[in-house]
Design a protein around this nucleic acid. Sequence first.
DNA 1: CATGAATGAGGGTTCATTCAT
DNA 2: AATGAATGAACCCTCATTCAT
Lengths: 223, 223, 223, 223
Amino acid sequence: MSDQMELWLQEQLKFYDEDEKKTEKQLRILSAAIEVFAEKGYAASSTSEIAQKAAVAEGTIFRHYKTKKELLLSIVAPMMTKLLAPFVLRDFTKVLDADYASYEQFLRAVIVNRIEFVKKHLPVVKILLQEIPFHPELKEQFLDAVAGQVLGRLTPIIEKFQANGQIVPIPSKTALRLTGSAILGFLAMRYMLLPHLEWEDEQEIEHTIQFILYGLSTSERPG
Amino acid sequence: MSDQMELWLQEQLKFYDEDEKKTEKQLRILSAAIEVFAEKGYAASSTSEIAQKAAVAEGTIFRHYKTKKELLLSIVAPMMTKLLAPFVLRDFTKVLDADYASYEQFLRAVIVNRIEFVKKHLPVVKILLQEIPFHPELKEQFLDAVAGQVLGRLTPIIEKFQANGQIVPIPSKTALRLTGSAILGFLAMRYMLLPHLEWEDEQEIEHTIQFILYGLSTSERPG
Amino acid sequence: MSDQMELWLQEQLKFYDEDEKKTEKQLRILSAAIEVFAEKGYAASSTSEIAQKAAVAEGTIFRHYKTKKELLLSIVAPMMTKLLAPFVLRDFTKVLDADYASYEQFLRAVIVNRIEFVKKHLPVVKILLQEIPFHPELKEQFLDAVAGQVLGRLTPIIEKFQANGQIVPIPSKTALRLTGSAILGFLAMRYMLLPHLEWEDEQEIEHTIQFILYGLSTSERPG
Amino acid sequence: MSDQMELWLQEQLKFYDEDEKKTEKQLRILSAAIEVFAEKGYAASSTSEIAQKAAVAEGTIFRHYKTKKELLLSIVAPMMTKLLAPFVLRDFTKVLDADYASYEQFLRAVIVNRIEFVKKHLPVVKILLQEIPFHPELKEQFLDAVAGQVLGRLTPIIEKFQANGQIVPIPSKTALRLTGSAILGFLAMRYMLLPHLEWEDEQEIEHTIQFILYGLSTSERPG
DNA sequence: CATGAATGAGGGTTCATTCAT
DNA sequence: AATGAATGAACCCTCATTCAT
């Protein structure tokens, strides 16, 4: 069942992977910029270094992107969309309904899928997380997307599982925050803070899922 | 009992709050630097803006701090120490033993205390978190402190509670990661991402603690 | 005969005069830098003044020369080579042999030629002499060139003239030092210390040559 | 006879060695300044380095010398006086007359004496020579002293020896230039350019003196 | 007299951006 | 479309000098 959902997700998301056609040079620029931004941060990166790494003249960057900032946004903005894509799918909740899926199945499918996504686009996600604190527009854009789309989609799901007693009746935002923290915490540790350690990925993910499930479960609680 | 521990913690930590005597100008510089670094990030902050905000000549900054980087470190390095201080206390575990404390009591005391601390030193903690990705020495220093001191102190505690059945028998590092994620996730949301929202702090903290407790509890689990 | 040698020298040296192609701006920068360095010395010259005098943006200087020091070296290093060039010519001694030239003819040709050269490149030579005391690498480079190339070429010449009795049998290095001092002394006086006086150049040069010749001659000496 | 003159010189010059009374700190400042100026040159030396090397507060330097330049002059100006002192002695020529001294005896006494002096005050002489090109007042002061005092005293001596046939009848300025070049050339080589080599000082000085004597002698010359 | 914190102008250098080719 | 030389503002930092202590 979770596999079904996984496949369904993949299907739906293909739509979002279309990139406009870019020249080879443009791709080299993007790739170089991602590398440099991820390593040094936007502010400490120089367009000249990016140009050099992309084997392109300095001026060429500005032919495709009016400013350095626009280059950053062209990297980070689509990532935001794609990162949150599954939660924005129109028939996202229906699938669950149709399947009478448990919260566990839902969680498992989404988490595994998103972790896979982050792993694949790690440097860009890194840039996104690193730069959000310094760019109000980015932050706003991010919060808007989350508040406006993700919350709207996820809240009913949480509430449904609260209604049928699978999830403890706390504010849905709190439940989502806790779920998100556990996942992001794993990703940050795994891929940003300690990427050089040897990780038992499957076990860690499993423990994380269990942690969330039990953390939000309604099994009897002390007074 | 948790109150007792809280008080005990406060007592022990007073030692760490001593600051060397600084001139008034130096304090103004530090304060301005914290403000600017927190807002724009280290790389995008200019010493001239800091000087202006501190109402000090730019040269004055460099009389007290040889370089801009040294200014950053003088802000961030002590914070690292203080942030981790309670976990480095020598008789940290003994207090727990003596009290036969439950994991809940332990968690509650530490979390409340650290949240209070972060709230008080928010901008510096923000700088620390924001800059760690860009300064390998900072990252290393941080990981060393955590790996060398904190882990050593916390692992036995976790294991003790695992031994007496209060905590699920997963690797202690995983348990600590999950606990840390939940706390840091709260702080990041509460104070960095959405500080302008109205928060029911006590409830949120309570839910977070419960989340951790149940997430790690050994209450019967489904196959 | 001395005229022959003079012509031969000119011919040989043409090879050294090739300069890589430089843009017009680069030439203006070099010219301005030479002017300012010669007048104020390297340390007291500012790149902004050089830029201004070259009618170029300050940044332009650093597009062509990574550092101020590199600008200095790019002016001074080739001069060192060219200044010593005639003494490094491969068939330098052969010409003398072939002609059974006297020490006087040799001296006359070389001195006149080098004085002409210095006159032409005066400011750069000034810079070279002025900066050698402050830049160990320059000093070393200079001494290496002199010790490694010039001495090797001139010593046999001196010794030949000592063998046939034209030059007094003192250490060849001493003879060279005394010869060099007389020439450099003239140049320093003439072009650096008292350039505004009216000089009878031909007479002075003639006296200087005579001074060297008699100073090193074997005409009967007292006790 | 040359020894007599040497002693007489020493006697006359004592007068010039009186220093005004300086505090110990002032002496430390002077000594440090001499060291730093000699090594890096005036422009590249910082008062803070001098203060540090003198173990004195930065402000203390400016209590004794209004400006950095004044510090330089206070070091260099007296040196100029003392360096030229023997040629300014009132009864300088009389001594020679009284003794019917030969040019050789005269030269020998003066050269040995001045070389000894330079050796003793080497760093300051170094500073003087290095800075003269960059400070018009210094240069002027130096030329005035030489032209106004030294020339006036030495010209009659040269002319006397030309009259009695010991020196070749060239312009006295030329003769002095040649003499000076040979001496300065030796000093520059010996103490500034190649101080680390092992020098046979007595021999070199002797050769230098002979070089000058023969260079200016009237022994029969070719065509 | 001695100090050293404070100054702010100026130092060399980097940088994002422009534009003629 | 691509280039890279040119720009000049802004950067971090050093400096000689001042002045309250």
